Computed example of a mutant assay.
Amino acid sequence: MKKKVAMAWAPGNISCIFEICRGRTPERTGSRGMGFTVDEGATVSVSRAPATAVFYNNKKVDFPTVKLVIRRLTAKKVMVRISSDLPLGAGFGMSGASALAAAYAINRLLKLRKGRKELAMAAHCAEVEAGTGLGDVVNQSHGGLLVKFEPSWKFRVVRPKVEGARHVYCAWHGKMSTRNVLRNEKKERAINGAAEKALAMLREMLKKRMMERAPLPFAEIIGISKRFAEESGLLRDRKMKSLIVGIEKRRGHASMIMLGNAVFSDIPFPGSVRLRISEDKAKVLP
């Protein structure tokens, strides 16, 4: 008997630093940077259908990233239903999570027998083609707080020892177009210049901590992230700036979530939602 519905889950991802690494193909395009996955994410169910359709929290949506991953895996028509407590377009990597979980579920439903790396690459390429991300899928396929010193398409990550990285507090308002940022050459130059400095600083900090056999404080990671947000010119929104100043006055640490009109912090603040930093990676559900 053919399976009627297949389900999968992938975590949300908060990107702290990113450098755009362009290649000739989606398979050789990605990013370097740092970020972490959280306990909330995208639960996706996939079933056969007369026509392909995508729903996000029961609302039919035009979701190019998910449709592209479908086309990369099959010519069959499927219905994709995505459920999440996290919003689209706010920097939580939900395009990547939705595409990756959809890939896992399609593979299960249609018995494609593709491996995890192949499915993750299909989702990564879909994100690149749609302009919705460059490195989220890599983190979501590994899970945890990760640094990518090499371009994300290589799927190689560093998992540093970090102290105090258990919970994070987030707030968001409105949406930011990742596509518009990634396709702006002037912004790309500023982003890459700031990212190169931030990653060099992070590498030295990790090297020093390794020699001292001590973990890197989460507060220092947030500090590097904030510096990158400012130097790249991405932190421009007045409301986000005001939130960060308020958090710092209360002896907390905060930065901008890449790429969204959103803030993350190591202490609670008005309007924030608590998420757990998690090492859970994308998976097929029973």
Score class of each variant (00 low, 15 high):
8 A>Q: 08
24 R>N: 15
65 T>E: 08
220 E>P: 13
203 R>H: 11
235 L>A: 04
119 L>E: 02
51 A>T: 15
82 I>G: 11
73 L>F: 10
221 I>D: 00
7 M>C: 14
210 M>L: 09
59 K>S: 12
130 A>R: 11
102 A>L: 02
66 V>Q: 05
256 M>Q: 14
87 P>L: 03
253 H>S: 10
173 H>Q: 14
285 L>S: 00
152 S>F: 04
53 A>H: 04
69 V>H: 11
280 D>L: 12
283 K>C: 15
69 V>I: 07
90 A>V: 15
283 K>W: 05
266 D>H: 07
258 M>F: 10
184 N>Q: 00
166 R>P: 00
33 G>E: 01
179 R>D: 00
219 A>W: 01
240 M>G: 06
174 G>L: 07
23 G>T: 07
278 S>Y: 10
210 M>K: 12
125 C>F: 00
78 V>Y: 07
63 F>W: 06
44 V>M: 06
94 M>E: 01
48 R>A: 14
278 S>D: 13
87 P>V: 02
266 D>G: 09
227 R>C: 03
123 A>Y: 11
43 T>K: 03
111 K>E: 07
220 E>Y: 04
181 V>R: 06
254 A>M: 06
122 A>W: 01
202 L>I: 05
41 G>N: 06
222 I>D: 00
258 M>R: 08
171 A>Q: 04
24 R>M: 12
84 S>D: 06
260 G>P: 12
26 P>A: 09
124 H>D: 05
133 G>Y: 07
42 A>N: 14
89 G>E: 05
170 C>L: 12
43 T>G: 00
46 V>C: 11
109 L>F: 05
92 F>M: 07
272 S>M: 01
111 K>D: 08
246 G>H: 06
199 L>F: 04
136 D>E: 03
42 A>R: 12
55 F>A: 12
200 A>P: 00
166 R>M: 01
177 S>R: 09
87 P>C: 06
82 I>K: 11
249 K>Y: 03
